[in-house]
């Protein structure tokens, strides 16, 4: 039955112009950065560069595209997550879900997976775009996998925080703005605290944990951080909706 909620979320995203517009805009931005990356690679590598300074095309183009993707998702996710619960609360349609034989955990997971599935389409497109270079050169699929995994975890973390904020209000726009501010703060936390790399606060920065993935490095510490981040905010959402039910 979770699958049914996922299906409904996806269908509602594609039933509105929002879903298509976001997909098209994201693809346009990533496509542009991909082309610029390929173009710059040939310009840079054809210059007088020592062999040891040269990097592969996958890393060169990949850091261009995945770098911008992590930033652009900061705007895209709040736009998509803001209406997940707050819109249903405003329209009073949450009652249909809550009176169905589904636990609140299933409802929250269904909505979360629906949004993450939609965003996964974007990530798959990015991966396909960069992998397409394999047609004329050798591509580092390990690097692509690491970046795709990192971006997916980052986007899933954004979505988990977005769904939690959406559960706090019945105004989707308010939810969108708060999500954006919270994500932006979490993303650049380490910039504020750049002087103290051992700071616990700096350790909470999402970008700090995405950065190893973007270098092609899979670290279980970073992986665990994202998973804990997701679980924390999904649990908070469940608790919030359960409290609503208790209070009526």
């Amino acid at each position: 039955m979770i699958f049914n909620i996922v299906r409904k979320e996806l269908k509602s995203l594609f039933s509105s112009p929002m879903g298509w517009v976001v997909l098209a805009l994201l693809q346009f931005v990533f496509g542009t950065f991909f082309l610029i990356g390929v173009d710059q690679y040939f310009q840079t590598m054809s210059g007088a560069m020592r062999p040891e300074q040269r990097i592969g095309i996958t890393a060169f183009v990949g850091q261009n595209v995945f770098g911008i993707a992590s930033f652009v998702m900061l705007f895209a996710v709040p736009l998509l997550s803001m209406r997940l619960i707050s819109e249903e609360r405003r329209q009073q349609t949450l009652t249909f879900l809550f009176s169905a034989p589904l636990s609140i955990t299933e409802v929250v997971l269904g909505k979360f997976l629906g949004l993450v599935s939609f965003l996964s389409i974007v990530i798959v497109f990015i991966a396909a775009m960069i992998s397409s270079m394999n047609l004329w050169t050798e591509v580092d699929f390990g690097y692509i996998f690491s970046n795709v995994l990192g971006l997916w975890l980052l986007v899933a973390s954004f979505s988990a925080l977005g769904i939690y904020v959406s559960s706090l209000t019945s105004q989707p726009v308010v939810a969108g703005i708060i999500t954006f501010i919270a994500l932006f703060a979490l993303l650049i936390l380490d910039h504020f605290l750049a002087g103290d790399p051992t700071s616990t606060m700096a350790y909470l920065s999402l970008m700090r944990h995405f950065e190893p993935f973007s270098r092609g490095l899979l670290d279980t510490k970073d992986f665990a951080y994202f998973i804990l981040f997701i679980i924390t905010f999904l649990t908070l959402t469940i608790r919030r909706l359960d409290a609503d039910r208790l209070r009526g």
């Binding site: 049914n4 329209q91 009073q92």
Partner: peptide, 26 residues
């Protein structure tokens, strides 16, 4: 339960809405 308020999901047509609702019940 038929609610008192006229609440509805604005993204779907009648048949889709009924099929989704039935889907929630497996």
């Amino acid at each position: 339960v038929v609610p008192q308020e006229l609440v509805f999901d604005p993204f779907f047509n009648v048949r889709e809405m009924l099929r989704f609702q039935a889907g929630y019940f497996g």
